[in-house]
Design a protein around this nucleic acid. Structure first.
Length: 467
RNA sequence: GACCCCUUCGUCUAGUGGUUAGGACACUGGCCUUUCACGCCGGCGACACGGGUUCGAGUCCCGUAGGGGUCGCCA
């Protein structure tokens, strides 16, 4: 039996011919115009759990606040989930609420579920569990402490706060007729047969309201799993503006989706055996409730950077190639005119060296430019008048080379340095800067081999001309 | 103000009464490399505090402090 959250699922009992009802989890974001990293992590945990158990992952859009809910805002969320690779089994196919969704428990936009809510509200009114008050509808909330069974936090006994003590009942329908979050959330979870509610701990306290609502509808409780929150690196709460709060920081930060998924999975969950780097398939295999943490976690970009490096180097040659080529094209560099061997040789030089996709163009861009773009500091240091005669001699030595491979290039450089009675370094740096424009880059001899004799001499000449 | 959750190196964490408290990232010393990295070998570095319980507590209990969350006709 996989999955610690499955055991003891009471809902299964309602379906006589089935021992267990399969897991149904959902991610229910409100379209605000951006995807918060905490929301992405909640989606990930739900998705991992669904995939781990062979269950169903539902995406439901909580767009009851039509003032700020737009198609574009929904698309931001859908795009973010798609980028991460979190596919949903039921839910919207686009940000358009009018378009037909996939799945048979729809609609999956709350803005389209008005009739369902009406029916449920009437049910509560009829049972006298709710009543009208100043145009709104309020729910008769219990005055007693409510026990919230949570598979992560244990049984949480939630007492009323002093304010709630004064007026325990809460609004479920506003005076403008719109049902509120607590109501629609519970109704949808019932209607969509959600078995496990996995969400951020910011919802824990309010779950007492939900528990009472489930009871009022005579529905069995889903398993609640409140997962810890993600905070800023300094421990303060994360808001929109904080760096790393938005998914955009990751999609545009040169990260591989699998690295971000891996990183997010480790924020609030642990495989318990010190494994850090895990492909998504392994995450699905291993993700389970017992590893879920109870304490909040903080974002830490260096760890993500390291995981990103590990995921990049784990890429197959073909996958690395398509990623690298994509980066070069995004940087405006034309790689289509080059022959395949040249490109392959270039990419071979940076395998295991690229830590961030955004570094690709800077690292090997010079292979695809006709004019070397000089880094000012590197040029000032290496392309000096004193180095000019050295580089000129090296140029002649290279011009006379019959075989232009890394070994020959190294030997020739050493011989030239010896003849001129200078250290190899004195020739290495000017040569490197002449060829690449920068002090750092791939192995000098190998890079020159790939560039080819004619191109190297051309670049030497260009450098010599400005020394 | 009330209520709820949390507390092991800087960060993510392992740890379920007896451990020299382990790992990863970060930082740092060295080796390798005539660039930058990688890699390898070291180092630094934690049980928030105070009481209990126990032969024995990071592990159990209580309190304090700190952090986070919630208490809305937002979600």
């Amino acid at each position: 039996m996989p999955g610690g959250w499955v055991a003891g699922n009471v809902r299964a009992g309602f379906f006589g011919n089935r021992l267990f009802m399969s897991v149904r989890v959902r991610f229910a974001p409100s379209p605000t115009g951006y995807l918060h990293i905490g929301g992405a992590r909640t989606a990930l945990f739900n998705w991992l759990y669904a995939r781990h158990t062979g269950g169903t992952f539902v995406l439901r859009v909580e767009d009851t606040d039509d003032a700020r809910n737009t198609r574009e805002a929904v698309d931001v969320i859908l795009d973010g989930l798609r980028w991460l690779g979190l596919d949903w089994d039921e839910g919207p196919v686009s940000g358009d609420a009018m378009q037909e969704s996939k799945g048979d428990r729809g609609p999956y936009f709350q803005s389209q579920r008005g009739e369902i809510y009406q029916r449920r509200i009437q049910e509560l009114l009829d049972k006298d569990l709710a009543y009208e008050h100043e145009g709104a509808v309020k729910f008769r909330m219990t005055r007693e402490p409510v026990t919230i069974p949570d598979v992560v936090a244990g049984d949480v006994v939630r007492k009323l706060t002093d304010r709630e003590e004064a007026d325990p009942d809460f609004v479920i329908v506003r005076s403008d007729g719109k049902p509120v979050f607590h109501l629609v959330n519970v109704v949808d979870d019932i209607e969509m047969d959600i078995t496990h509610v996995i969400r951020g701990e910011d919802h824990l306290s309010n779950t007492s309201k939900h528990v009472e609502l489930f009871k009022a509808f005579g529905a069995a409780l889903p398993k609640f799993a409140h997962i810890p929150l993600i905070l800023n690196n300094d421990g303060s709460k994360m808001s929109k503006r904080d760096s790393g709060a938005s998914m955009a920081a990751y999609t545009e930060g040169g990260y591989l989706p699998s690295a971000v998924v891996n990183y997010l999975s480790l924020l609030g969950w642990s495989p318990k055996d010190n494994t850090e780097m895990m492909p998504t398939a392994e995450l699905i295999e291993r993700f389970d409730r017992p590893g879920v943490q109870r304490a909040n976690a903080r974002v830490d970009m260096p760890t993500l950077d390291w995981l990103n490096f590990e995921h990049i180097r784990a890429l197959s040659p073909d996958d690395f190639k398509s990623q690298a080529l994509g980066q070069l094209q995004a940087a405006g560099l034309d790689t289509t005119g080059r022959d395949a061997d040249y490109t392959a040789a270039v990419l071979a030089l940076c395998t295991d060296k690229i830590k961030n996709l955004n570094d690709v163009a800077g690292y090997i861009g010079f292979f695809f430019r006709d004019e070397v773009v000089l880094d000012a500091e590197s040029a000032a240091q290496a392309l000096t008048p004193e180095n000019k005669p050295h580089l000129a001699t090296l140029r002649e030595a290279y011009a006379g080379l019959a075989t232009f491979d890394a070994d020959s290039l190294m030997e020739a450089l050493k011989a030239t340095a010896a003849a001129r009675e200078v250290k190899n370094k004195v020739l290495v740096m000017p040569a490197r800067v002449a060829c690449t424009g920068s002090k750092v880059g791939p192995s000098l001899y190998h890079l020159m081999e790939v560039l080819g004799q004619a191109e190297v001499l051309k670049r030497f000449d260009a450098a010599l001309a400005r020394m």
